[in-house]
Design a protein around this nucleic acid. Structure first.
Lengths: 164, 164
DNA sequence: GCCAGTTATTTGAAGCCTAAAGAAATCCCA
DNA sequence: TGGGATTTCTTTAGGCTTCAAATAACTGGC
């Protein structure tokens, strides 16, 4: 607590430079890696990152999921998913059908060809990621996981507080 | 080294699950925070994140910089910057002029109004970031900075190796 | 059964983003 | 000094992304 010349409580502007620098560094790392993955996906498989991400979500579930589920998991808007799915259905990677129990709901899943294609891409993708992080030892990886979990929780708390 | 039944060297597919999980967590953190900052900028100042980022780059230099400099610093394409700048000049935040020594080059800088506007936004932005990271202690912040620096270097090395 | 409220998705407008091709200016070196 | 290579920026086509509004289907209470 700091008091001014008339003995009144004063808010001193604190310095948050370290947090800002941390955020910028986090952003730089992600942008760098994301750009690298994006380039390689395009070069190697002529596919975009959002399409790959969507297929990755669907590969985890055999029976497909709803558009809303996808949109929550990918942390993008509903309208975004609509267009993305449309193009992937068009190209034969996805299968889409209206749920019978609730006709508002669209169930989507990978086609056989889509799944095969994805598995092929995922196998290489895994090697790229391993290479990108190859200077980090197992201990570094563990520690980063821990600190990022803490960061995620902190950010969620902050977002939650604002939303309510 | 692993040998198969005929005593020939064999590449065993290694498991890179931890690296993949680390990358996904890194991406989640960034997406979460970026979305939060984006929402707040829109709500509070009706400005987009790319515009804020561009203005942040220009606030650091009094005499402006070239479009190429901006594009390198922001890690986005040249064409992208052209459009962004156009809109910010239109709205009176930026001043743009052709360099006299090299007529290919466009020098851009914040207008007086643009700088004032940015400073106002930046002050609040700093508080948001501080709040978002508020569960991390100073030690956590230092450790994250260190590990992300290492990550960045590793990713750059990998990208460099591919490019050459 | 009906209506108000909620939920799932789509649409539309605007902006962001990339890659690739093109235009203009400069550089460099033979 | 001429001309090919390079650099800087813009343009184009296509796709991604958001927000907000619209549509359609479901749910719960009466």
């Amino acid at each position: 607590m700091i008091l001014d010349s008339e003995t009144k409580a004063v808010e001193l502007p604190e310095d948050h430079g370290n947090e800002i620098r941390l955020w910028l560094r986090l952003l730089t790392c992600t942008t760098l890696i994301e750009g690298e993955v994006r380039s390689r996906l395009r070069e190697r498989f002529d596919v975009t990152l959002p399409r790959f991400d969507l297929m990755a979500q669907l590969d985890k579930v055999p029976d497909g999921m709803t558009l809303s589920d996808v949109s929550k998991r990918m942390m993008v808007s509903n309208g975004n998913v609509t267009g993305l799915v449309e193009r992937l259905v068009e190209s034969g990677h996805l299968d889409r059908r209206t749920s019978e129990s609730d006709r508002r709901v669209q169930m989507i899943r990978l086609t056989k060809a889509g799944r095969a294609e994805f598995r092929k891409m995922a196998a290489e993708h895994e090697l790229w990621i391993a290479d990108i992080f190859s200077d980090l030892g197992p201990k570094d990886v563990r520690e980063l996981m821990r600190l990022l979990a803490k960061t995620k929780a902190s950010a969620q708390k902050s977002a939650q507080a604002r939303a309510s």
